[in-house]
Design a protein around this nucleic acid. Structure first.
Lengths: 201, 201
DNA sequence: CCGCGCCCATGACAAATGTCACCGCCAACG
DNA sequence: CGTTGGCGGTGACATTTGTCATGGGCGCGG
């Protein structure tokens, strides 16, 4: 019997996934949580063998939860389940110690299969996604550029970004300009959107 | 036995929802589709009594699918199932002839319940959401302003928006400026994001 | 130690953006 | 019929944004 923890913020989807896994004889759901910062305690108290983590979670990112889990409960295998097949997400998931990476676009039958294989110690990644992750290359942005871009994502002005990061306005403009050129786009909005679509945030 | 059609683009979620509904004795899933433009034919050929429609669908918006379905198959009740509790979505869903409006944030148990009530001819809407929809008021944007804002959403320049809508640049700037003031924000990006978050697109 | 890359900053400049006043056209409505 | 409001347009203006050159400080690897 494989003991599984499910972390997913949308209650309806979470419940549906539980129903899906209940159909399997060799899998039992021992914990469900809605927040990233509940993952650790729930995993410890339930003795989960496999943790199924969404990336977009309130409280704490699924990838961050994976890191915590890996540190204090290294026997628990981790499967990331996410909507977006962003190359950067896959890379970061692997860096976080995940054993599996599944898309919500994948057929429902693959879920139980992936959990079984991960429980046996295998790694499970959509091969096509792995290719695009390799082809896409790695994140060309420096940490500062990421911060500035992330701040610009929701329409903040240069002045706001500057004060929120304790920088000069000119510096912010420089970082933005460099990021725009690296990404080959024409303004900050496109740059921010593109970076996010690649999982570079 | 209530005959249900499910339209949801993410295969994993779709399969999980099917598993969830399979647990109910009086509900049977007679069709599942991934695209909005497959809803109509699938509903007709399967004789579905209730259609469960996601809003974000490839091919054709779930709300548009609802309108088509309403016209050519008026006996089929419609339930909109969506991630976002945007006030504008609810209003448009009701205008599209939907009988129910459910959030993916709602508990999984509510799904079967909502389907049963809708099948009996009742209307099902999250009461809290209905309140915010009323409080939020209706869309203050004119059709043109919506178009311009939508085009600006992905970082297009004024010139690009102008040529794509066959307008003068000055006119586009005017529409943007008016929209920015109506929405009480400070630039086009915030305006576009705010409008989208309200479902005014 | 020296170079390299990242970070921060300045100042200047061109381009894009946001605002304003004012124009006309047209359809809906009292 | 006159008024109102959405739509399209012009021109001007201040502000913001994107680009460039340049320079200093810091940490890391050869």
């Amino acid at each position: 019997m494989i003991r599984v923890l499910i972390a997913e913020d949308q209650a309806m989807v979470r419940g549906a996934l539980v129903a899906l896994l209940r159909l399997e004889d060799d899998i039992t759901v021992v914990a469900e949580v809605a927040r990233g910062d509940d993952v650790l305690t729930a995993a410890l108290s339930s003795g989960a063998e496999v943790a199924l983590l969404d990336i977009e979670l309130p409280g704490c990112d699924g990838l961050a939860a994976a890191v915590q889990l890996r540190e204090s409960h290294p026997d628990c295998r981790i499967v990331i389940l996410t909507t977006f097949g962003r190359a950067g997400y896959l890379r970061r998931a692997m860096d976080s110690g995940a054993s599996g990476f599944l898309l919500k676009d994948a057929p429902a039958t693959e879920l139980a299969d992936a959990i079984r294989r991960v429980a046996k110690g295998e790694r499970v990644v959509d091969p096509e996604l792995a290719l695009t992750a390799l082809a896409g290359g790695s994140n060309p942005l420096t940490p500062r550029e990421r911060q500035v871009l992330a701040a610009a994502l929701d329409g903040a002005t240069v002045a706001e970004v500057a004060s929120s990061l304790f920088l000069s306005e000119g510096t912010v403009r420089n970082h933005l300009s460099v990021a725009i050129q690296k990404l080959g786009v024409r303004n900050r909005v496109q740059a921010a959107r593109f970076a996010q679509s690649m999982g570079w945030l």
